[in-house]
Design a protein around this nucleic acid. Structure first.
Lengths: 142, 142
DNA sequence: TTTTATTGTAACTGTTGACATTACAACGAA
DNA sequence: TTCGTTGTAATGTCAACAGTTACAATAAAA
C-alpha cells in the first residue's frame, strides 16, 4: 500500500509557486503543464492546500500564492493537508473478545503503532518548503 | 490512505501461535475464530509469513508454528512479509522535463522520502515479537 | 456592460486493491 | 480409506485513485 501521489504533486505545486511567482501567474493549467496531469487534479489539491491555510487562490482572475512563509510550511503540513486518514494503520475490526489475545491485542499494539507513525511524522516535520526551494535553486542554477 | 489490516492480523496470528502452541493445534480455522475473519484470509497471510521464513506450516495434518525465535522476529519483518510495496510514497509519474522544477523535483525529493520511510522502519525494527508476547502475558495473567 | 480566463464542482469512467466467501484438489496422518 | 487441513482459484462487493468532460460562478480587463 502506498500513499497517493497527492503529497508529491502538492510539493511540486508549492515549489512551482515559489519559483515562478514573479514571472508567471500560477494557474491550474500552468501547474498541470509542469506536473503533467489534468488541471482538475491540480485544482482539487490546491483546494486541499487552501483549506489547510497553506496557499491562497484568487477566484475569477486566477492564480495561487503561498498563504504563509515557506519557512513555516513543512512536509508534514503538506502531508496532513492532502491525506485525510488520521491513522496510518488499519486495525482489523472485531477481534474475538472471548479469546485472551483478541481481548489484549489492541492495548498491546495501539501505542506502538502510534509511535511508529510519530517517527514518520517527526521526520516529515524536519523538512521545510524553504529548504526544498533552496535545494531546487541550487540544482537549477549551476 | 492506510496500510491494509494484514500487519495487525499477522501480528495477532503470531501472538496466538506463541501463546497457544502447547495447548492447541494452530489451524487457520482456530486463528480465524480469534481474529474474527475468514479462514482463507488467514491462510493467505500465513502463506506470506511462511514465504518470509517467519512461520512453518504443516500441509495435510495442519498447524502453524514459528520458524525462528520470537526474539528474532520484529514488527518490521512482519510488515515486509505482508506489504509488498517497496516504497511508501507514490511519486507522480511524468513530471515535465521542459520545466526546471519538473527536471529537479525527483533529485530534491527522493532522498528525503527515503529518510522518512527509514524512520518508520527503524521504529518498527525496535519491536520484537517476544516483547509483544511478554506484554500480552502481563495483560492476561493478573 | 461585455468579454475573457479562471476557479470550484459535479458527474462519469476505468483501474486497482482490500476483504469476504464458496469451492475444490492436494496433502498427510490415523 | 477416511478425515481434517492447506493451497489456490474464482467471484463479488466496496472504496480510493486518477483522469476526463462539462459548466456555473467569479472577477478583472476591454
Amino acid at each position: 500500500m502506498q500513499f497517493s501521489s497527492r503529497l508529491t504533486i502538492a510539493t511540486h505545486i508549492l515549489l512551482c509557486i515559489e519559483t515562478f511567482k514573479d514571472e508567471y501567474k500560477i494557474t491550474s493549467n500552468f501547474l498541470a503543464g509542469s506536473i503533467n496531469t489534468n488541471p482538475v487534479i491540480i485544482r482539487n489539491i490546491l483546494g486541499l492546500l487552501s483549506s489547510a491555510g497553506i496557499v491562497e487562490i484568487k477566484a475569477g482572475v486566477g492564480g495561487a500564492s503561498l498563504a504563509r512563509s515557506s519557512d513555516d510550511i513543512t512536509l508534514l503540513d503538506i502531508f496532513k493537508a492532502v491525506e485525510k486518514e488520521e491513522s496510518l494503520f488499519h486495525f482489523h475490526d472485531n477481534p474475538n473478545l472471548q479469546c485472551p489475545i483478541g481481548r489484549s491485542v489492541h492495548s498491546v499494539m495501539d501505542g506502538k503503532l502510534e509511535n511508529i507513525q510519530s517517527a514518520m511524522e517527526n521526520e516529515m516535520s524536519k523538512i521545510t518548503l524553504s529548504q526544498l526551494v533552496k535545494e531546487t535553486k541550487d540544482q537549477i542554477k549551476p
